[in-house]
Amino acid sequence: MPRGTVAVLATDATVDRGAIATALALTEADEAHLDIHCLGIESTPPDAFMAGPTLMLTMPDSEAARERARELETEIRPLIPAHRGNVQLHRHHIREGLIGHDVGRIARLADRIVAAAPYGHDARPLQVATLEAALFTGGLPVIVVPDGGAEIAARPARLMVAWDDSREAMVAVRAALPMLRRAGCVDVVIVDPEVQTGDRSDPGGDLALFLARNGARVEVSVLARSRFRVSEILRRHAFDTGAEAVVMGAYGHSRLREQLFGGTTREMLTDARVALILAR
């Protein structure tokens, strides 16, 4: 019996190829349904011009957006194995300026999203917009994978939880519980914890107990802040320990603050070397 729905919000067949491959592998292992949403997003052509005293503006091209959705479906369909009857492709026309609203409504009908890394060598504004729509408006977890995709076993050998005692981190842990229960080891990682009066003497102990009571096999790693950026410490630890994915809360600060000044979420997404399981 199929177990839930995984979705991919596709805007570019090349960029999203790794996400589609990962989603196909996950839904085959979990016997889940896979919905691939081909998004044709309106954009206003930058061809405003003066006609006498009047400024003429070209209106958003709705038909071009619909055609883009059809092209995406044509480009993506060959990536789906013929025997996979649990995969469906859907076309959507997304109105200009309403990506958050429209994509969020599509995303919320899935159990989790698989997405390409939104920051790469080239600008990926549509990937950023769809990821944020899934997290903020859709309100569901997103598995972000590197460009080549990621291998996440049905029973992962090792998963890592980036724990900072925040609400967002706890939401991510709860969202990932089914996968955490199946993992051979769940490594709760805390960087330079602040111990305040009344706190437990064992940082991460409360979360470790919560996970153990939910059937996970847990260890706790308390790391010193040996590097300037927390993201660098987390990436290095994930690589050194062979973690298949990192579970973490997304955008503990505002999106605007992270965009202007940086933040752990944005930095992890900028150089995504392993899968990131995000929620907020």
Rank of each mutant, 00 (worst) to 15 (best):
A245H: 01
G198M: 07
A69G: 10
V189G: 03
A153N: 10
R217E: 14
V189K: 02
R3E: 10
T54E: 14
P2A: 07
S201A: 15
T54P: 03
A153S: 15
L234C: 06
S166E: 07
M50Y: 15
D122G: 01
V161A: 11
G215P: 05
Q259C: 05
G198V: 01
F228P: 13
E96V: 09
R181K: 13
L207V: 01
L57N: 12
P2C: 03
G104L: 12
A133G: 06
R217C: 10
P178G: 04
T241F: 00
T130Y: 11
P46Y: 00
A32C: 02
G148T: 06
G120C: 00
R236F: 14
L135G: 05
A176N: 03
R95A: 12
E28L: 14
R181N: 08
A48E: 13
T270Y: 11
D199V: 11
E63Q: 06
R182C: 05
T27S: 11
R155V: 08
P125T: 10
L57G: 01
E132Y: 04
V220K: 07
A162H: 07
L177K: 00
L72K: 03
F136C: 04
V220E: 03
S231W: 12
L24T: 02
A48Y: 05
G120A: 12
E258D: 04
D47K: 13
L276M: 11
A212K: 13
A48I: 06
I113P: 03
V8Q: 02
M50S: 08
G242I: 14
M268I: 04
W163L: 12
G262K: 04
M248E: 07
R112P: 06
R227C: 05
V188G: 04
D192G: 00
R213Q: 08
S226I: 14
A29Y: 10
E244W: 10
D61T: 05
H253E: 11
D61W: 06
E232L: 04
L140A: 00
L180C: 05
T54M: 15
P178T: 09
T44E: 08
S231Y: 04
V230E: 04
D199T: 06
A212W: 09
H92P: 00
V191Y: 03
L34E: 02
V8D: 08
A212Y: 05
G138H: 08
H90F: 15
R200G: 15
A134V: 03
D35R: 13
L24E: 01
E232M: 06
A272Q: 07
H92M: 00
I20H: 03
S221W: 07
S221Y: 02
D240A: 15
I76S: 04
I36R: 05
D240Y: 00
A129W: 08
A208R: 13
T5P: 00
C38G: 09
P203Y: 02
R227M: 13
G52Q: 11
P193A: 09
